[in-house]
């Protein structure tokens, strides 16, 4: 059945999304998929160093990450995202890479803190100078350690990035 859209009352609620009262919504798949993905980012519970404490604080009652749909998962196989919270050492790098490799696509990396971004104050023999040397990082959150608000800002930026994606759901991507 073809619907003649010129005669019935389609209301454009935002760019690219139209609503036909009472409850028919017309939009692109990109938009639906991205929206559902960004509203439930599940990071791995993976703390490395100091920043992990601030990550925990962000997850606890006071800052409450849950309201963004961010719930920490114990297993990388159930997660969408990994927050590299802390200094990555050379001994730890293979483990971090393995955790990242276990996350199913689409996956995202947030480098939290100066150490994960650039090595921070530790220019030593066993410190990796920024985890972007071996991971595709999406968002860099600076600070030593970043406050929970900063981490939240980082996650909102990640959501913005996810909102702009096109056809990442498709099998021909």
């Amino acid at each position: 059945m073809l619907i003649d859209t010129s005669t019935i009352g389609l209301v454009e609620v935002e760019e690219g999304t139209k609503v036909l009262p009472p409850n028919l919504i017309i939009t692109s798949i990109d938009k639906v998929v991205n929206w559902s993905r960004l509203s439930s980012i599940w990071p791995v519970t993976f703390g490395l160093a100091c920043c992990a404490i601030e990550m925990m604080a962000a997850g606890a009652a006071h800052y409450d990450f849950d309201r963004f749909g961010i719930i920490f998962r114990g297993s990388p196989r159930q997660s969408d995202c990994v927050i590299i919270a802390g200094t990555v050492t050379k001994k730890m790098a293979p483990v971090v890479r393995r955790v990242f490799d276990q996350i199913p696509e689409p996956r995202y990396v947030v480098a939290m803190g100066s150490c994960a971004c650039s090595g921070g104050i530790f220019r030593t023999y066993n410190t990796v100078q920024g985890c972007d040397t071996f991971l595709p990082v999406d968002v860099f959150v600076p600070g030593c350690p970043p406050r929970p608000e900063t981490l939240m800002e980082g996650m909102i930026l990640l959501q913005e990035k996810m909102r702009k994606e096109q056809a990442r759901w498709s099998m021909w991507r």
Partner: peptide
Amino acid sequence: LKGPEKEWSGFAEVLEKAKKYREFDWEG
């Protein structure tokens, strides 16, 4: 302090692996 010139073999392996997998990264 910054370590010797030659990278530790385990980390060098990770770097190589990351380089190899970079072509599969989604670029949008």
